[in-house]
């Protein structure tokens, strides 16, 4: 008789850094996440797509151990967030949708605080925070209180805040909301660069289809707590638009993520 954790070890060999099995979370009669299975490989950039209230944020909270699943199992970096939340949170950086900082501290002080919570000495924390401020282009603003930061600056500081713990996985929940187009481009390039350079796995949850298409290796389409499709954009398109020559009413040759996404919601695909 093999116990459940041992089976898990067997399954986890495939270098999957995030593994969700039959994950379910209910709020009263409402099922926010419905027996979700998902595996994300190390080093990939995975896009989580879906309308509001599809259960994306709940799934993310369960990966971090901030919400307990009603059913199913989660494995992140080989740890179970339900029983080992601290080990998971040592390795996973999470940038929430609207990241908050202590407004009466400077950007630098906020970063140093996070670094010290992650077990750095205050000197090491200061050096590292300084380097990160430079990297995200906030070097000139590091002595300014975060209360005076613009939305885009806060978001970039949020990224630095995530990076200061040298994460293996970064989870970004709508990170580009409210940043201007140039800022978005810079932000996305930074993420892609980091992921490729340091083999950081990125889970990118967003409504912005073209952003997701731009940076993600694979995407998962999430509707009403269920994962409807997983794969890279090309194979999803090939699956969906078999026999169609080009997007309807368009001159383009390739299918974009928009086409795929809307196909799911126009009832063109059987959800079961």
């Amino acid at each position: 008789m093999v116990s459940v954790p041992e089976i898990w070890k067997e399954v986890a060999v495939a270098d999957n850094i995030i593994e969700l099995k039959g994950l379910t979370r209910r709020y009263g009669p409402f099922t926010a996440v419905d027996s979700l299975d998902l595996a994300i490989e190390k080093g990939e950039i995975f896009g989580l797509l879906g309308p509001n209230g599809a259960g994306k944020s709940t799934t993310i909270l369960m990966m971090l151990g901030l919400t307990e699943p009603d059913d199913g199992t989660v494995r992140v970096c080989g740890f179970d967030p339900v029983s080992d939340p601290v080990e998971v949170k040592k390795r996973v950086g999470y940038l929430p949708e609207e990241v908050g900082f202590y407004d009466d501290l400077t950007g630098m002080e906020n970063l140093v605080y996070t670094a010290r919570l992650n077990g750095l000495s205050s000197n090491a924390a200061r050096i590292k925070a300084g380097k990160l401020m430079e990297r995200i282009g906030l070097d000139a603003e590091k002595a300014k209180k975060t209360g005076k930061y613009s939305r885009g600056m806060r978001q970039r500081l949020g990224l630095a805040d995530v990076l200061i713990k040298d994460p293996e996985v970064i989870i970004l929940d709508e990170p580009t909301l409210g940043i201007d187009p140039a800022g978005v481009k810079e932000f996305l390039e930074l993420i892609v660069g980091l992921s490729r350079e340091q083999k950081i796995t990125v889970l990118f949850s967003s409504h912005h289809l073209h952003q997701v298409q731009q940076i993600c290796d694979r995407v998962g389409i999430f509707v009403a707590g269920k994962l409807l499709a997983v794969g890279d954009v090309k194979s999803l398109a090939a699956q969906l638009f078999r026999g169609e020559d080009r997007p309807a009413g368009s001159e383009r040759k390739d299918y974009s993520l928009d086409d795929i996404y809307f196909r799911y919601f126009e009832g063109g695909v059987d959800h079961e």
């Binding site: 999470y94 908050g100 202590y102």
Partner: peptide, 14 residues
């Protein structure tokens, strides 16, 4: 209200 709770709780602390 400041939105710092989520960020604090995603740090490796109980």
């Amino acid at each position: 209200n400041r939105g710092t709770m989520g960020r604090m709780l995603s740090q490796p602390i109980h």
